[in-house]
């Protein structure tokens, strides 16, 4: 029974991981910007699935609401509005292989380290995920200061983004 559950979780993880990575590659490589935006949404959805698999339902929910919901829709809107812009496709040369090589090397190193360390043997047998109330209390007690500063980060980002987007003088 336990073995069957393991196989199910493992196969689910594999599917979600492949979905996430495949969609990310598609998001970067697609020629049409809309496809890229949709692929990005799919990839973010895959990450939400991984969070659910880790029993982090709160994070998964936020992932869906903020990233899949708000950000992807926003990106698609932007794509719609700036459609007339010409997107220049740069021919990719040897960089692709270089990048692939580095990525494979990195995965190999991380995989080697993970397999050779004690990670696989020290999985906690059962562990109750924190409730939403606990998360809320933690954020407002232990981490209140970080929350305040996050508000400032958001303010700075909004001010900066508005400045970047603002039309100045005789711009078209």
């Amino acid at each position: 029974m336990k073995r069957a559950a393991h196989i199910m979780v493992d196969s689910l993880f594999l599917v979600l991981a492949l979905l996430t990575i495949g969609a990310s590659i598609l998001a970067l490589e697609s020629r049409e910007l809309v496809y890229g935006a949709v692929s990005l949404a799919v990839s973010l959805l895959g990450i939400a699935g991984l969070f659910i698999l880790l029993e982090a339902t709160f994070v998964a929910m936020l992932q869906v609401i903020v990233f899949v919901g708000a950000i992807s829709v926003l990106i698609i809107f932007v794509v719609m509005l700036v459609r007339r812009e010409k997107w220049v496709a740069l021919p990719a040369g040897g960089e692709v292989f270089g990048g692939l090589l580095i990525a494979i090397l990195l995965v190999a190193v991380v995989g080697y380290l993970a397999v050779n360390s004690g990670i696989s043997s020290t999985l906690p047998p059962s562990y109750a995920p924190p409730s939403y109330t606990q998360i809320g209390i933690q954020i407002l007690t232990d981490y209140w200061f970080a929350l305040e500063i996050l508000g400032l980060v958001l303010a700075a980002a909004v001010i900066g983004a508005l400045t970047m987007a603002k039309i100045e003088g005789n711009e078209p």
Partner: peptide
Amino acid sequence: FLMIFVAWELMGIPTFILTGYRK
């Protein structure tokens, strides 16, 4: 680490915009 990360972002995000200030 959480605070370091948040402060890191507060330090970093404005500098990206300042670097590209001359649009």
